[in-house]
Design a protein around this nucleic acid. Structure first.
Lengths: 117, 117
DNA sequence: ACGATAATACGACTATAATAAAAATTTCGT
DNA sequence: ACGAAATTTTTATTATAGTCGTATTATCGT
């Protein structure tokens, strides 16, 4: 049952600061952003930032990588796609899913609005 | 769409019972499902069901309509689309959103009494 | 090695969410 | 009008989330 995983993901995003963090990371792309920068942008103390980031980590929505004494955070787009797909499942009444995947970093995206028939 | 509204929507969905309710309603389509049926399917007492449904209502994700002494609940697909669009915003690195809208077959035009479960 | 910087771990407090029994409300059938 | 059915309101209790100061760990520059 992946429903529990989806609930965890939604709960992780269901907070002002965490949603802001996640969107920053979505915009930032695979390179990510150091924890300190995230804390500064949000205006929260470091310990609070850690608390929130850990929820996102535990939900599998973000990844960490250490660079020197900084810890860069990046969005996990695969997890995000799973989340969106789950919510959109059956949304059009048929067996078809109307939520496409999202693939950042790769410039493979056409400008057409193609979708499954 | 404001971030606070999105947070409210995510928080509303970030619960086992509420997510289950919402998905049932997504599958059920515009006709919706009576509160009692939802409570029975979840195995929760009526007062608990009301509590959860109100979060979804307040978040604008579901609508209610009274039919006799039953209250039918239906998913608000417009709100759901807004939520998905917000999460997917900038997800492909460009200004383009890769999350399409969802338009279930509308059979909700009739204002007369509907069938009972 | 030492001092400074980046981040996490710990601890204490406050606020809000979740649960559900019991009472009240609305509507139906007869 | 009366009693049964569907749902909400009330009320109370318990559990968990959020906040942030301080302490601790890891890394860098000199």
């Amino acid at each position: 049952m992946q429903g529990a995983q989806v609930v965890a993901g939604l709960a992780a995003l269901a907070h002002e600061h965490r949603l802001a963090v996640f969107r920053m990371l979505v915009v930032a792309g695979p390179d990510g952003i150091p924890a300190g920068v995230l804390a500064a942008r949000l205006g929260v103390p470091p310990s609070s930032l850690t608390f929130h980031v850990q929820q996102l980590l535990h939900a599998g929505l973000v990844t960490q990588r250490r660079v020197g004494r900084q810890v860069f955070h990046a969005a996990d787009f695969t997890a995000m796609n799973r989340l969106l797909a789950y919510l959109g499942e059956n949304c059009c009444g048929g067996g078809q899913s109307c939520v496409p995947v999202c693939e950042p970093g790769a410039t493979s995206q056409g400008l057409d609005g193609e979708r499954v028939a």
